[in-house]
Amino acid sequence: MPTCRIDGRPIDVNDEGFLTVYDQWDDSLATVLAGYAGIEELTDEHWKVLRFLRDDYPARKETATLRRVTAVGGFDMKELFRLFPGKPAKKMSYIAGLPKPKGCV
């Protein structure tokens, strides 16, 4: 597994670039990752989603799918597509420092 220098420190990632170590992530890193994912500024709305993903992960050891973010997190699907345009599930999990979701739905 490669290690990249992001935000001035070594970060472990997989071959696609997703973070592999939960605790290497922090808010400052998220803003850098957001920039890489084409999101210039993380608003409060972005942060709410990212916090949900971060809080949901440890118990399940699996990143929430879009469906779970809406059904359990209570977020609106259209809103997610607006906040993380294009590939929302990949973008939000990348910025949250989590693996990309595995679930089909």
Partner: peptide, 15 residues
């Protein structure tokens, strides 16, 4: 481990 100075970024299509 060697540290890559160039980050690996996933393919977001519009990145």
């Amino acid at each position: 481990t060697e540290i890559l100075e160039t980050p690996i970024i996933p393919d977001f299509g519009d990145t």
